[in-house]
Amino acid sequence: AFSSEQLARLKREFNENRYLTERRRQQLSSELGLNEAQIKIWFQNKRA
Rank of each mutant, 00 (worst) to 15 (best):
Q27V: 11
T21C: 07
I41W: 14
R24F: 05
L7M: 06
A1D: 12
E5S: 08
K40Y: 12
K40D: 15
S30T: 13
R23C: 09
W42G: 01
E5N: 06
S4M: 12
R9A: 11
E22K: 15
E31A: 06
A48K: 13
E22H: 12
I41T: 10
A8D: 11
R9F: 06
S4L: 11
E31T: 04
R18H: 11
L28A: 00
R23Q: 15
L20W: 04
N17K: 04
Q6I: 11
L32N: 00
R25I: 15
S29G: 07
A8F: 04
A37H: 12
I39K: 01
S4P: 14
S30K: 14
S3E: 03
Q6E: 04
E22W: 07
K11P: 01
E31V: 05
E36C: 06
R12W: 10
I41A: 13
R25Q: 13
L34F: 02
E5L: 07
N45G: 07
L7W: 03
Q6L: 05
L10I: 02
E22I: 11
R9K: 07
E36R: 02
E36A: 09
K11M: 15
A8G: 06
N35P: 15
L28Y: 00
Q27C: 10
N35Q: 11
Q27W: 09
G33E: 06
E22G: 10
K40F: 13
F14P: 01
S4N: 11
F14I: 03
L7T: 07
Q6D: 04
A1P: 11
R47M: 14
N17G: 05
S3C: 04
F14H: 02
R47F: 12
L34C: 05
S30G: 08
S4E: 14
S3D: 06
R24S: 06
R18T: 06
L10D: 01
A37S: 12
R12E: 13
L20E: 05
Q38M: 12
A8Y: 04
S3F: 03
L34Q: 00
E16A: 07
E36G: 07
S4Y: 11
R12Y: 08
I41N: 15
N15D: 14
E13D: 03
W42F: 08
R12V: 09
A37V: 12
A1T: 13
L10T: 00
I41F: 10
Q27P: 02
S29T: 05
Q27G: 05
E5W: 08
I41C: 13
R18D: 07
R24Y: 06
A1L: 12
W42N: 01
Q38W: 11
Q38D: 14
N35S: 15
E16P: 01
I41M: 12
E22F: 06
A8H: 08
N15Q: 13
K46M: 15
F14L: 03
E16S: 07
Q44I: 07
E31F: 03
R9Y: 05
R25P: 03
Q27A: 10
